[in-house]
Amino acid sequence: MTLALVLTPYVYGLGFFMMAAGLLIALTSRHLIKRLIGLGVFQTSAGVFYILLSKVSGGTAAIRLEADSPAAEALASRLDAAYIAAHGVDGVVYSNPLPHVLILTAIVVGAATLAVGLAIIVRIRETYGTVDFEEISALEARALRDVREDEA
């Protein structure tokens, strides 16, 4: 377990780094499409965190095996009997399936967000002629100024 103790801060750190980096891109990029990509990285990194929780050392994917099948025996050959007895289910150690299910959902949600976001971007490009965040802000500010001048 000592190796796992060293790896723990490292893998969580990578996950949290990806969250922060994705968030930064989503908040600061001037190109709207890159913002959406950053948003996607941020969403995916939330998934990374869940999946990190699901791993069981020495485990296998949560597809039930018969304990006496060759695959199960190959898996078991690397672990002590006591470990399998304590943490296995019917003689086989599996990783936790619940985070997998949740993240399957989250990935689909991410794709849905991306589709709607891109559709809005396509409309923005048709309307404003640009997808640069600062140019759009400048265009909107100018439109507002024109309205004010019309009244004056």
Binding site: L23, A26, L27, L32, R35, L36, L39, F42, Q43, T113, V116, G117, I120, I121, R123, I124, T127, Y128, I136, E140
Partner: peptide
């Protein structure tokens, strides 16, 4: 037309 940019900002903030 500002609905488009408002919706995009809403999407980014809402998703975050």
């Amino acid at each position: 037309r500002r609905a488009l940019t408002a919706a995009f900002q809403y999407l980014v903030m809402g998703t975050i």
